[in-house]
């Protein structure tokens, strides 16, 4: 009499989650040996559990911010001291881009070191950049698909374009040359922002694939390392370079976009 005949998916989940007693565990293991397809399911689920833990366990050893100190909250009679929660106020577009994370740096598994540091200066910096990256992505989505009017001023009038945008942004900007990388300048446009103005340069390769470089003047001089963000099929690199911030956006892979970003950075440096 084989009890393994009665094993169903619920048993398999329970097996993965350590819910079964010794006897039932044994029966499931025999069953899995006889059913390789189910064994693959189980292996995938176990992998999912491990991946979820690898993703989020880092927070466990992080210092807890003082606003979460229950003694402090109790001293305050359980009343909130935090500033208004942004979560509810965001419009749909903002909410779409709300889920930023920082510090998922290279080598988390193979190298063991994870550098997620909530509330670190880096994260504060990121929070400050969020609107810029969001705006650049939105602008890319809006204009990169545009067939008739992708730009205000065509790349054929590059000199006029650059001097016009420089004048409006009140800082000297340049349109990087990407011809060696296969991208020609389609042109550029002005974009309204909440505070001030942004410029967008658009480039196109021989296959019609477009990338945009979003440019704003910094309120105060600031520099940063390269940062990467992605949304759906768009990838973006952004960086702050003294007086100007740049966001390079494209519907191309990160691997394709990265050398372009580095190239632009080196061209615009000075």
């Amino acid at each position: 009499m084989h009890k393994t005949d009665k094993i169903n998916d619920a048993d398999l989940h329970a097996y993965v989650d350590g819910e079964l007693d010794e006897q039932r565990t044994l029966e499931v293991e025999i069953y899995l040996r006889e059913h390789p397809e189910k064994a693959r399911d189980v292996a995938v689920w176990q992998q999912q559990n491990e991946t979820l833990q690898a993703l989020y366990n880092t927070i466990i050893d992080e210092p807890v911010p003082s606003r979460l100190d229950p003694h402090q909250i109790a001293a305050n009679n359980g009343k909130s001291t935090k500033s208004k929660n942004q979560w509810f106020g965001w419009q749909s577009m903002a909410a779409m881009f709300a889920l930023f994370t920082i510090g998922v740096t290279s080598g988390w598994l193979g190298h063991g070191a994870i550098t997620k540091t909530p509330h670190s200066p880096a994260q504060q910096l990121l929070a400050a950049h969020r609107p810029m990256v969001r705006h650049a992505l939105v602008a890319h989505t809006t204009y990169a698909v545009e067939v008739l009017h992708p730009v205000d001023v065509s790349g054929e009038n590059e000199q006029h374009l650059v001097s016009w945008l420089s004048k409006r942004l009140e800082v000297s900007i340049k349109a990087p040359k990407l011809t060696k990388q296969g991208f020609t300048l389609v042109g550029g446009r002005l974009l309204p922002r909440d505070e001030g103005i942004a410029a967008q340069f658009m480039y196109e390769d021989a296959h019609g694939s477009r990338i945009t470089l979003y440019v704003i003047r910094n309120q105060k001089p600031e520099t940063s390392s390269f940062r990467f963000a992605s949304y759906k099929k768009m990838n973006a690199f952004y960086w702050l370079d003294h007086k100007i911030s740049y966001v390079l956006v494209g519907n191309v892979t990160k691997q394709e976009l990265s050398p372009l970003a580095h190239n632009i950075y080196s061209q615009l440096e000075n």
Partner: peptide, 19 residues
Amino acid sequence: PPLTLIDDLTVDPSIPPDQ
């Protein structure tokens, strides 16, 4: 809210990007 992630990561050229 449409839950979509934006991964922000510091680009470290010394590590192959495709691990």
